[in-house]
Design a protein around this nucleic acid. Structure first.
Lengths: 150, 150
DNA sequence: CACCAATCAACAACGGTTGCAGATGAGCAA
DNA sequence: TTGCTCATCTGCAACCGTTGTTGATTGGTG
């Protein structure tokens, strides 16, 4: 994603005001790879700006999404995730804790066979790899051992 | 998905009662390819059984999902879709109207490069092709013509 | 430096889904 | 068939993530 300074320019260029709240959100997002929820961003920004409202966070995240500077993801983890990485990429999701990591893989090799297209125009292809992250795996192993011992 | 008769057996085998409500839901789902929401199933069942509650529909759909007889899909269309097709397959989604159609394509050709796995174990790969269905395309074309003429 | 639209925070509303409590009825035994 | 008992059903309220609304506040332009 763009730097906070670049986003500041972009907002100004669009006639949007650059408030301290928005700047705080820019800097929280910058370099983030954890695919945060709105709530998570709210908590993070609240640390340095306790008076910010969750509503403002949603507003700014939606503005950024509308400008294409972040992507909103729905990965079935309950709430939307916001992805500051706007390069073409895919996701690896832990079905247990919801952790999401970026994956660069070539999805153009999967094609819809013509007869199955039903006349659709396909804009893009999303690939979601689902499984377990190492942390959840080891937690499960402990659980299993306990069960066996019990 | 299994036939209503087979599902009846399955429920009985599991000690679950087979109520008229459940049977009505089985027969609505059987052969359905539209990936209905709970609300849609509720409306359909209500036609023949006007007193059924939405709560019961959710309950039965969740039971079926827990038994693996339907899959719950979250495709970012607002509400969960229930898919009676439990074969391995993927989906083509219209970003405009939310229509979903099944796609049989080999996704095993997309792999996560080892270094990007972060220690995850990958259970399965979901591919979502996004675009426009023919109906929405033609509706848009009309809109565009109007704009141009206006 | 003043003005006014844009933004803010707090609150209520919203849609989808689930928890709850009392009424109902499926399945079993006699 | 009849009656018993517990799972299920229904209707309602609560819940969660998100968005609309409102008056108060604030930033940027002239």
């Amino acid at each position: 994603m763009k730097t906070p300074a670049e986003l500041t320019e972009l907002f100004r260029a669009r006639g949007l005001k650059v408030t301290p709240q928005r700047q705080a959100i820019f800097s929280v997002l910058h370099g983030d790879t954890a695919h945060p929820t709105a709530e998570w961003v709210y908590d993070a920004v609240s640390k340095s700006m306790p008076t910010i409202s969750l509503r403002t966070v949603y507003q700014t995240l939606n503005d950024l999404a509308a400008m294409g500077e972040v992507h909103a993801l729905d990965l079935g983890t309950g709430s939307s995730r916001f992805d500051p990485n706007v390069d073409v990429h895919h996701h690896l999701v832990c079905d247990e804790c919801g952790r999401v990591v970026d994956v660069y893989a070539d999805a153009s090799v999967v094609r819809v066979p013509g007869p199955q297209k039903h006349g659709f125009t396909i804009d893009h292809t999303e690939v979601v790899f689902r499984g377990r992250c190492p942390e959840c795996k080891s937690r499960n192993d402990q659980g299993k051992r306990k069960e066996v011992n019990a």
